[in-house]
Amino acid sequence: MSYTFQFGVLAQYQDQILSGIWLTIKISVLSIILGCAAGIGLASVRSIWGGAVRFLVDAYVEIIRNTPFLVQLFIVYFGLPGLGLRVGADTAALIGMTINLAAYSTEIIRAGIEAVHKSQIEAGEALGFTRFQIYRHVIIVPAIAKVYPALCSQFVLMMLASSICSAISTQELAASAAFVESQTYRSFEIYIAVTLIYLVLALALRAVLAVVGMWLFGRRVARRTMTALPEVQA
């Protein structure tokens, strides 16, 4: 093999790569906030109301978790305009990521809620807590603290999966890599560089999430967040 690597040519495309990184960070952070909020909401209404609401939430979770993210993006980006909703590539990416992450968050938080022991709730009642107080202090906050590391792993996986949005022409990091590749034909160099950038982003995101976890739930949860690897959700 007589190939000489030339990483130098990448320097002049710094701006494209930086704007790709910025969009990746933006859609990832937004979809994490929105998806997590939706997950908390859906897991809550599911456990409070039961019945048809539970069925609908569960159906949503199962449908999203058993179909590929790429196909979900295609439906949002190519399918929605047919229904009269025209969305740009960035918005479609954000919608797709949020819908996807909301389903996974719901499933993870549901497991946390179901792990809260009945005696805890009874203890809350015995202390004269209102139902809202019980829900807040006894159920949802401890539930999230418990599953926080798993939740964070899912967030990191979502950030990595945002690269798939390049398939619907969202100009995030993977798309900027493809652009530089088409300009320079230095495919191997650019993809190695961008892969390293993703690796750094994943580590940085995990560190940020650990700090947030420390602030919200204390040191023990933060430590578990740092060491937890993506748990595979069945």
């Binding site: 093999m1 798939i164 191997f188 690796l199 994943a202």
Partner: peptide, 25 residues
């Protein structure tokens, strides 16, 4: 090895093996 594979997008693994294999001839 595990940390690296779990820290990069599947898409990048795909591109690296696609271009890497052709680079190797």
């Amino acid at each position: 090895y595990i940390q690296i594979i779990q820290g990069i997008p599947v898409l990048m693994i795909l591109f690296l093996s696609y271009y890497g294999l052709s680079l190797a001839g």
